[in-house]
């Protein structure tokens, strides 16, 4: 298949960027989207042009590194799929594909399609953990956890931290990411003691990182490669309210 790509090119964080049109002829429909970009890059280098920079690593949908907005949708047209798991058979010959980075003030562009998502790490650092040190923990079966609770925690914990929720949100809000981490820990007894304090500190950090607020549009849920539910946002809203009113 023959495609026309419109790719965001930006040399570094300081210089402005623009969309560049790049032809991508004879693409095999069994390729993954990133393999298509690999091929395009090989051809660019052959013409002595610098390759397109984009983040990727595991290429099996779990590391959360890949981060493209494809034709206006974070991770492209398939639901529950990361960019690396998107295959070219999803497109048609002659298609024009617009490829942009995840855009948010909290995700400054490093180069081309590569953005800095360390703001998400800093939110976790502010309280997204159970305060337990290595050693001295009780036997793993000492506290039974209802299967349902463990399952809900796992639903939330499936988050890969890619930031597609931020990219898709009209407000560039990180609430789905933050609420998924909060809910993962809030639903199991080990994480329960710090539930309110965690909600308070993570939300404070999220606000400092200049993400927008959630206005419940649910676009985040729709693009989330792990299909994490916005119900967790409701839960975080509840925990935050309780933290606010119950705080000392």
């Amino acid at each position: 298949m023959n495609l026309v790509l419109k790719v965001w090119r930006q040399r570094n964080a300081e210089e402005p960027g623009q969309l560049e049109t790049i032809e991508a002829p004879s693409i095999n429909p069994d390729m993954s989207f990133l393999e298509m970009l690999d091929v395009v890059n090989e051809r660019l280098v052959a013409e002595n042009k610098e390759p397109i920079a984009y983040d990727h690593d595991c290429r099996e949908g779990i590391c959360g590194a890949c981060s493209l907005v494809i034709n206006g949708v974070a991770h492209g047209p398939d639901r529950g799929t990361t960019t690396c798991q998107l295959h070219m058979r999803r497109f048609h010959s002659g298609d024009e594909i617009v490829i942009e980075p995840f855009r948010a003030r909290a995700f400054p562009v490093i180069r081309d399609l590569v953005v800095d998502r360390s703001s998400l790490d800093r939110i976790i650092q502010s309280g997204g953990y159970v305060s337990v040190s290595t050693g001295g923990t009780p036997d793993a079966n000492e506290i039974p956890i209802p299967k349902r609770a463990a399952d809900v925690a796992m639903d939330a914990a499936a988050c890969i931290g890619c930031g597609a929720c931020v990219a898709a949100c009209k407000n560039a809000s990180a609430m789905l990411f933050v609420s998924a981490k909060a809910a993962h820990l809030a639903h199991i007894p080990q994480g329960a003691p710090e539930r309110l304090e965690r909600a308070r500190s993570m939300v404070a950090r999220m606000d400092e990182e200049t993400f927008g607020a959630c206005t419940n549009t649910s676009d985040c849920e729709a693009v989330c490669p792990k299909e994490i539910s916005i119900e967790f946002i409701g839960e975080l809203n509840r925990d935050f309210r309780q933290a606010l009113l119950a705080g000392r």
Partner: peptide, 15 residues
């Protein structure tokens, strides 16, 4: 010990 540690950290193992 690893399993004990991970459960204490909140790893949602299958139950």
């Amino acid at each position: 010990n690893i399993i004990d540690q991970c459960v204490a950290q909140g790893v949602p193992f299958a139950r």
